[in-house]
């Protein structure tokens, strides 16, 4: 337990729960794991999310996808910007949580700043990537023909162990900027910022269900995240080749798109800024119509 100075009032400890459908339920399984600091002191009891939690999250994510994908690009842009505003206001809390989990203070501060800046970066893309990656196609007949990107659907995300805030934010941001919904598995060893980020999302006008955050065992949940038949794409950021291979094999069950990024667990915020990450979770739709009277 965190030590209490004699003169201080008794601290209120935070209960870390899951974030599903805009609410903070405990895992339906009732399981937990104890998070300890480097000295072996108890930091928190963290929910050990289950397969059922994931399935519940998928149901609300699918529902949320329909509405989120139809929001205007300008609206999505403002909401992603709003996440950055909320994160900025609570940056000390995130720095503290990173520090408790063993991240050096200077590095923790930088990580929080980079996460905020990254959200600003993607907020700006929300109403621009469509222009950059769409086309009017000069077909050799009397048709008007154009192609535009559309969100793939529901994306399951495996966040990296390190960069437990920055990596998490850098994987969520391109996915939701592009109009997808997601279910994300937080860093197993450093899960605190993920849960607190759920609180940021909850106060940022992000509709419930667009982002759902689970904590728990990656080994246990990886198969659920990659075999569920309603998942359209998997985004893997933990950087372990065997795990990636397992995901890729499972993905073939229903031709899920698989994207992996090695910068998530070791890179800088700058390296995670890339519109092609948005495009990993977009489908190109082409529409034809005759020209005539």
């Amino acid at each position: 337990m965190v030590t209490i100075e004699k003169s201080e009032r008794l601290k209120i400890l935070k209960t870390y729960k899951l974030y599903i459908g805009g609410e903070f339920p405990r895992t339906e399984s009732g399981r937990y794991f104890s998070l300890k600091d480097a000295d072996g002191n108890q930091i928190a009891n963290v929910c050990s999310g289950s397969r059922k939690d994931f399935r519940n999250a998928m149901v609300v994510a699918r529902t949320a996808f329909g509405k989120w994908s139809k929001r205007t690009a300008y609206n999505r842009s403002q909401i992603v910007y709003r996440i950055a505003e909320m994160l900025e206001a609570r940056k000390n809390q995130f720095t503290d949580e990173l520090t408790i989990q063993g991240v050096d203070k200077v590095k923790a501060e930088r990580e929080v700043h980079e996460a905020i800046d990254l959200l600003i970066y993607y907020a700006g893309w929300a109403d621009k990537y469509q222009q950059l990656f769409s086309s009017v196609n000069p077909v050799a007949a009397s048709y008007f023909n154009f192609s535009l990107p559309e969100p793939t659907g529901v994306v399951s995300i495996i966040a990296p162990e390190e960069n437990s805030l920055l990596g998490l934010v850098a994987m969520i941001a391109p996915v939701i900027t592009g109009g997808n919904a997601c279910v994300i598995l937080a860093s197993e060893s450093k899960p605190l910022c993920a849960v607190t980020f759920g609180e940021v999302l909850n106060s940022s006008d992000v509709p419930g269900g667009v982002v759902n955050i689970l904590t728990g065992s990656r080994k246990e949940l990886l198969p659920q995240f990659s075999t569920h038949m309603d998942v359209n794409a998997v985004f893997y950021g933990a950087g372990i080749p065997e795990e990636l291979k397992e995901i890729q094999m499972n993905a073939a069950l229903n031709v899920k798109r698989v994207a992996d990024s090695n910068v998530m667990h070791s890179g800088t915020g700058k390296e995670m800024q890339d519109p092609y990450l948005i495009m990993n979770f977009q489908e190109t739709k082409t529409i034809w119509h005759p020209i005539g009277i």
């Binding site: 086309s135 196609n137 000069p138 077909v139 050799a140 007949a141 048709y143 023909n145 192609s147 793939t152 659907g153 359209n232 229903n254 031709v255 798109r257 489908e283 190109t284 739709k285 082409t286 529409i287 034809w288 119509h289 005759p290």
Partner: peptide, 27 residues
């Protein structure tokens, strides 16, 4: 939820026109 939409036409193809599917129709 499909990669090619033909409105008031069908089965038209052109080299300049991207083709491909959503979901289990491909990547």
């Amino acid at each position: 939820r499909a990669g090619v939409i033909w409105a008031n036409t069908f089965n038209k193809f052109d080299p300049t026109s991207p083709f491909g599917g959503y979901k289990e129709s491909g990547v």
